[in-house]
Design a protein around this nucleic acid. Sequence first.
DNA 1: CTGAAAGCGCTTACAG
DNA 2: CTGAAAGCGCTTACAG
Lengths: 338, 338
Amino acid sequence: MIAKKSKVSIIDVAQKAGVSPATVSRVLNKTARVSPELTKKVLSAVNELNYVPDPFAHGLKTKRTKSIGLIISDITNPFFPELARGVEDYVSSVGYSLILCNTDAKVENEKRYVELLLNKRIDGLMFTSLRVGEDVIKSLLSDGVPCVLVGRKPENIEGLIYVVTDNYKGGCIAGEYLFKLGHKRFVHVSGPLDNSAGRERLAGFIDALKKHKVKGKNIKVIEGDFTMEGGYRSAREILRLNPLPTAIFFANDAMAIGALQRFWEEKISIPDVFSIVGFDNIKVSSLVSPPLTTISQEIYKIGQLSARELIKIIEGEKGEPIVLEPKLIERRSCRCIK
Amino acid sequence: MIAKKSKVSIIDVAQKAGVSPATVSRVLNKTARVSPELTKKVLSAVNELNYVPDPFAHGLKTKRTKSIGLIISDITNPFFPELARGVEDYVSSVGYSLILCNTDAKVENEKRYVELLLNKRIDGLMFTSLRVGEDVIKSLLSDGVPCVLVGRKPENIEGLIYVVTDNYKGGCIAGEYLFKLGHKRFVHVSGPLDNSAGRERLAGFIDALKKHKVKGKNIKVIEGDFTMEGGYRSAREILRLNPLPTAIFFANDAMAIGALQRFWEEKISIPDVFSIVGFDNIKVSSLVSPPLTTISQEIYKIGQLSARELIKIIEGEKGEPIVLEPKLIERRSCRCIK
DNA sequence: CTGAAAGCGCTTACAG
DNA sequence: CTGAAAGCGCTTACAG
């Protein structure tokens, strides 16, 4: 039987159990020792009456809602569903709810949501983009609002917990891999460069190539935006390059897939013309053709871990920053040209 | 400036404005006439103090949270992000929040979420799958919980509002199209047949073919499950058929894409060997190769409309069922064999 | 360990 | 139209 809108209150339970409401509250919240006998009586009364505490009354005192907000740019970007799923699975396993907020990475929207969520007395906030600016987070933090940052490191915010993949290393792996395949001319379509994840992937890629003495003029960087549409557009820019590169590293899969579509339309065969590496390993990257070689992040796990840390913080424990390892996933979008 | 956890209460506002708390409440909630002078005083006090009503105290009386629950099987299934985005955009535009619930289409999970959401005093529920069974919805409805069903018609629930695409017609369009292309042997990989959307797409497809005198033995039906993995598995079954079909209609794009992957692995060239039609027109269907011909639903719009109807109901208006038209989107996965 | 009572911050009959 | 007061259903000092 599904719960009806319950009308039984803590007073009913107290009466049935022959104790005071205070005692009922204490056993339910484990907020003080109660003798085993009374505990038992209370519990069975709760059961019989199918009592569920009223969240409003509860919250009025405790200020807790058992919900967290997840702020993302767009759930329609294939990176986020996996992340959201990881988050939701974890929070729901501990009795919390997930409120989804799409901001399209716009400052105003992000601000609006943060206010809305705060006004609704959300228990914690998970940021993936951070358009509001680090100052806002700082003030949130100093107001005691639990926050975690997902997918990149905070630049200069003391004590902000984050969960990321080692983006610099991921960039290195991509560079290393393409170099070993014998490529000489590279393009990197980066993420937005106001974003540390984007900058680190770029830096890693370049450093790896430099280590092998690839000259600067053979490494072009095009600033991208992490969207499919952006990737599609970048493909056109790439095709204008002279000489053409033979290897392209996209800072995420979404852009790589957008570009792949463009190349397909132009009848440019991949990997014959260009070898392509993405980043993220989103689900679709194995479904496009050719299946995309990519640097994988464990997106689902990032979601879970972020949720775990956030809830730790909410419940008064100390969270800890987490850095996961990127991994090369070889599929069909690259070829060896040695 | 982002709101701090506000400590100003309705009493502070009342004092500043020189009125009673009741008056403040009345102007804020527009729940009774208040003279223009007092209204003005209250409003400016509210502004100066940056007052935001406490949702707990408010809810304790009104029982409203301004949040709704969206129950889906899996946000990772590419149909749902677009839907969720439509829902979220609408609800956030009217000050509500969206709570995301992934059930993997399992009864227990669905039940658990419904209870959880009810206990949290969610204002309304949006169902996409309906594993809990129609009885549960019936009792929800009779308890006065606002609900809407998305993506299919309720079978025998009086007064349940729904938003759907005309699935039967969609099936017809697919059948008609493949027949006109000259195909003679068809396979339909259906949705789950305990689901009316699945059954209707199937029925439309078959009826269209029968209308053209296609014989029953030339139409095979394989029951699917609307997942990519399911589509992938169905491809193997199809390849065992003798004689092979020349046309396949998948009841959704996710399954078609799963099958496409399998065919790619087996080096079976599409559309040379099979002509394939999907259903939904999810975003990725234009990115796979070949780009998928499909019967489109306006997923984002379905989300928006569902949200609109749900909120109507929550706010005491009457919702209305909505049926949208399916449309054929021709891409590259079919060929004419006449 | 337990209970009586105050109080969280609103809303809403009830009077006027 | 406006205010004083009760009450929504809990939690938590305060006593004992």
